[in-house]
């Protein structure tokens, strides 16, 4: 089980958190303008990366804040965490 460094609370056990899947998928501002294909792309299609992934986590049993994480999904090593709205770190 991971130790996650919540950007608001510091290091906490993984059991306090919930994962929220791939990050930086922005909800389309004008959904009605999209084709079914484009909408499905937003709704369901995922990179599901093996390797460095940018993903969302929620400190559900803590401050309840959502934040982003960079994690290597091949070995579960957490590389970085950053707040919602912040630019993802580059290496």
């Amino acid at each position: 089980m991971f130790v996650i460094n919540c950007p608001y609370c510091g290091e906490r056990e993984q059991s306090e958190f919930k994962a929220g899947g791939e990050a930086h998928i922005v909800r389309p501002k004008q959904p009605t303008e999209l084709s079914d294909d484009q909408w499905a792309e937003y709704l369901f299609m995922r990179k599901n990366i093996k390797g460095i992934q940018y993903e969302r986590w929620n400190h559900a049993h803590g401050c309840r804040k959502w934040f982003n994480m960079v994690r290597d999904t091949s070995n579960d090593k957490i590389k970085a965490v950053y707040k919602m709205g912040e630019e993802p770190p580059t290496e």
Binding site: K18, V26, R56, N58, R64, K65, W66, M84, G85
Partner: peptide, 13 residues
């Protein structure tokens, strides 16, 4: 509650 917080914090801050 979780879903509303999610949208509020991530889509509509």
């Amino acid at each position: 509650m979780s879903k509303l917080e999610d949208y509020l914090q991530t889509e509509w801050p």
